[in-house]
Simulated scan of single mutants.
Amino acid sequence: MFVHCTIETHKEAGIRPSKTYQSFVAAADSHREVGFIEKYVRNHITREVRNISEKDNAKEFGKYLVRMKEKNQNFFFELNLEGDHCIKHAFWANARSRAAFDYFRDVVSFDTTYNTNRYNLVLGSFVGVNHHGKSTLLGCALMKNEDIQLFKWLFECWLRCMGGKAPKGILTNQCALIQRAIELCMPTTIRRN
């Protein structure tokens, strides 16, 4: 704890990591007695900066969604943070996506095969097909994990966004949890895998 506090105090004072490490060496009388190398000091600083940055990023993402809603009242979003610093789950759809669903809602694909590397979040997307046979995005979600309660929340949120109208069919990546969430939220929807 002393080492962490010293590193953080030195960082705030603008002392370089190499000088901070040298202060530990001087206090211990040798490199061998310190018990860690200079890279540990640098890694600790980097880790702390990344944690602060990720907390700020979640707040900034929330602010961005609010700004989008202010620009266009048809923009829809729901965001849930854990402890005000990381995303638990989020869903958003712009006005164009919501309008497209009214025209192209026969069959919708929902896919969660993508993960974000930096924040370790699952990316989910709702996609339809327009009258030209081209994919059209109908909404996106970020999720901390994949469980039945989260998928249930997501599909209920998506239904609210789309005015309570369910598609005739949903194509999924064959996850049993997704299938169960669809059954709970849209019992009359045909489910296709």
Rank of each mutant, 00 (worst) to 15 (best):
F101H: 08
A90T: 06
F77C: 13
S109F: 00
Y114N: 15
N94Q: 09
L81C: 12
F104E: 07
K88L: 12
T116M: 12
Y119V: 09
S109V: 06
S135T: 07
G83Q: 10
R118A: 14
V107M: 04
E82T: 12
N120R: 10
H131E: 00
T113L: 13
H85Q: 10
H131M: 00
N72P: 06
F110S: 08
E82Y: 08
N117V: 12
F110Q: 06
F110H: 06
E70P: 09
G124R: 03
G133C: 05
T116I: 12
K71Y: 06
F76C: 04
R67L: 15
V129M: 05
K134M: 09
Y119P: 07
F110P: 08
Y119F: 15
S125Q: 06
R98A: 05
F91H: 03
H132I: 11
H89M: 05
N74G: 06
G83R: 10
F126H: 02
A95F: 07
A93F: 04
F110I: 05
N94D: 15
V108A: 02
A95N: 12
R118I: 09
R118F: 06
S135K: 06
Y119C: 13
S135P: 02
V122F: 01
K88P: 01
A99I: 10
F91N: 02
A93H: 05
R105S: 11
A90E: 01
L79M: 11
F91L: 09
E70N: 15
A95P: 03
F75M: 14
W92N: 07
H132M: 04
G128Y: 00
H132Q: 08
F101W: 11
D102Y: 00
E70L: 15
W92V: 06
M68I: 06
M68Q: 15
G133H: 03
K88W: 03
E70D: 15
F110G: 10
V108Q: 02
R118Y: 08
H131L: 00
S97W: 03
N72R: 08
T113M: 14
A100K: 07
L79W: 02
M68K: 15
D106E: 07
R98M: 06
I87R: 07
G83M: 05
R105I: 00
H132D: 03
E82V: 12
F110T: 04
R96K: 14
F101Y: 15
D102K: 13
V122H: 05
N72L: 09
Y103F: 12
K71S: 15
G83L: 05
E70Y: 07
T136I: 15
F104Q: 09
T112K: 12
V129W: 00
Q73E: 10
N120F: 02
Y103V: 11
T113D: 11
N94C: 14
D106K: 05
F76D: 02
A90H: 00
V122D: 04
G128V: 03
F91S: 04
F91W: 01
M68T: 05
V127Y: 00
